[in-house]
């Protein structure tokens, strides 16, 4: 009876796995993969591995939601309104797949597999626990450090907003003494981090950005002393966390581009203050670090936008 269920689940898993590359809608593709994982988890439940099975459902449900969000974010034709066909070297990959299946299948069928089933009724979760805390403690801690490295890597690679300002603005660490010139190598003029076709380009010259420069300087000064103990300006009530936006859009008409920056002030001290480089559009964004005494500075936003 369980063999029949395992066969059904295996077929379901393989069918949904195949559907992943056949459907047009990316959301359906990632949730088809999740169904394939759920089939694997079902087989795990049947093979008396309850923890592994349910943990697979749990972990894969989360991952497939994140995968669906990222697929919709970065792929053309996200919802499959037009048929989706983004394949290359099609014949080669079909061959590779079939060869892999045939090879592994042959290996399975030809070799004599060991036959010592798990004793029914053993507390497998406790065994795993003792294993984690006993002989494999090193693996357990290494996995912890690896996950930490993953978190740091993910933040460094994908986050644009950093402590020292925007990642694609050639953000640079604060000066050695408060208010001093920023330390570290100054990226070359119009450096490689300019955007592709529509981006706001590298550094705008200091000319019309002076309002933001003096703000910037003041920020940096404030930032450096506030830097060593994390967020000095962080008010405990978890104030509004949205950062002051950095207006980089180039093709905005001048009439609209002068932005009432003052509404963006005091936006939650939780964010790192803007190390503002004035983009070529004469944007000026007065977003002083929003520590509790920021209210009195709201007025400064006005005097700067005479450009």
């Amino acid at each position: 009876m369980t063999d029949l269920a395992i066969i059904l689940l295996a077929l379901f898993g393989v069918w949904t796995g195949w559907r992943v590359f056949r459907v047009d809608s990316m959301v359906r593709a990632s949730f088809a993969l999740m169904l394939s994982f759920i089939a694997t988890a079902g087989i795990g439940l049947l093979l008396s591995a309850p923890y592994i099975g349910v943990a697979t459902v749990f972990m894969m449900a989360v991952e497939m939601l994140v995968m669906a969000i990222f697929m919709v974010m970065f792929m053309m034709n996200p919802a499959g309104l037009n048929p989706m066909s983004m394949v290359h070297q099609h014949r080669l990959s079909i061959g590779a797949g079939v060869v892999a299946f045939a090879g592994l299948g042959a290996a399975v069928l030809l070799s004599d597999l060991p036959d010592s089933p798990v004793a029914p009724g053993t507390d497998v979760v406790a065994q795993l626990g003792f294993e984690l805390l006993g002989p494999s403690m090193l693996i357990f801690e290494t996995a912890g450090v690896t996950l930490l490295a993953t978190m740091l890597g993910a933040v460094i690679l994908s986050s644009r907003q950093g402590r020292f300002g925007m990642a694609d603005h050639g953000s640079r660490p604060p000066g050695l003494e408060p208010g001093g010139a920023p330390a570290g190598r100054r990226p070359e003029k119009g450096g490689g981090h300019g955007h592709g076709h529509g981006g706001h380009g590298g550094h705008g010259d200091g000319g019309h950005g002076r309002a933001s420069d003096d703000h910037g300087g003041e920020h940096r000064g404030h930032m450096s002393d506030g830097d060593h103990e994390g967020h000095a300006g962080y008010s405990p009530d978890g104030a509004m966390g949205a950062p002051g936006p950095e207006h980089g859009a180039t093709h905005r008409t001048p009439a609209k581009s002068e932005h009432g920056g003052e509404h963006r002030t005091a936006h939650g001290p939780g964010h790192a203050p803007q190390d503002q480089k004035a983009a070529d559009a004469p944007q000026e964004d007065a977003a002083p670090n929003a520590d509790p005494h920021a209210h009195h500075r709201k007025g400064t936003g006005h005097d700067g936008d005479d450009t």
Binding site: F31, A61, L65
Partner: peptide
């Protein structure tokens, strides 16, 4: 896992 699937 019910929670995760409910979010989905």
């Amino acid at each position: 896992s019910c929670e995760a699937l409910i979010v989905i």
